[in-house]
Design a binder for these strands. Sequence first.
DNA 1: AGTACGTCCTGATCGC
DNA 2: TGCGATCAGGACGTAC
Length: 290
Amino acid sequence: MPELPEVENTRRYLVQIGLPGRRFTGVNISWANTLKNPSLRELQQQLPGSRVESVQRRGKYLLMPLDTGATFIAHLGMAGRLRVHPQNQPAPPHLRHTFPLDDGRELRFLDSRKFGKLWLVADPQEALPPLGPEPLEPGFSVEDLCLGLAGHNAPIKALLLDQAMVAGIGNLYADESLFLAGIHPLRLGWDLSAAELARLRDGIVAALSSALAQYDRSRAAEWPDPPPALETWTIPRAKGASCPNCVSDMACMTVRSRTTWYCPQCQPAKASQPVSRQLSAPTNPQVGVR
DNA sequence: AGTACGTCCTGATCGC
DNA sequence: TGCGATCAGGACGTAC
């Protein structure tokens, strides 16, 4: 599922393959629900003839500013992929939309789950929802985290999935970040100590940057598609798997209807609890431990 | 206002 | 073995 590292990997691919500088010559949309902002007719009128200036990223959104002043925006949803291939190359499975370019190639939007979205907007600031700080920007600080979490009574796992808290974190990297920080997913946002917030900031940065580095190293293979064996996360997400840190069994539960993997030993339910009580199951009735 | 939950989708996996 | 049921998950609308 595309989260920040996957979207950034796609951005680097699109830049590398030379999308900036190319001009769109057409619009072929086969699934209208993907279009969020303009109607299909408006998109067909406005996109052809415009040139891509650059490919940028904000959170999980890819932004392509055009020479017309408008911005073409893509969100990959759950399974979306953007690729550039020759127009005469056979269509792969799940190809939803194509945008022919002026050099004989075309920008392809593949999306098996149909959760991806496209926008063409005059002002991206108005089109995008509220987004928190960029965790891989050098300025991402503990203070940024505190500002977002202050006063929130929800589980930290749920808060990390809120794009207004930190931009770009999804279900997998939320689990990774909490594991690296040694924080239980059900700890409440306001209840985290300064030391825990500092560990969480470091965990977020480490999880995202480590994954991105793995994508960079995989460029020689099937870039931008990672090799089948590439796993960009640290914790095993499987029944019976053991924690890579302490070798006790990983646990799985549902938080906000999202599968959540954690180590009960390394991520104690209460920060000050003695080790002997750390293995007790959460008592929240909304949560069922498998 | 803040939090919780259903909905959209389809490929993969589960269970009878 | 085969087929129907269930699950997964980001963002958003609605409900509490």
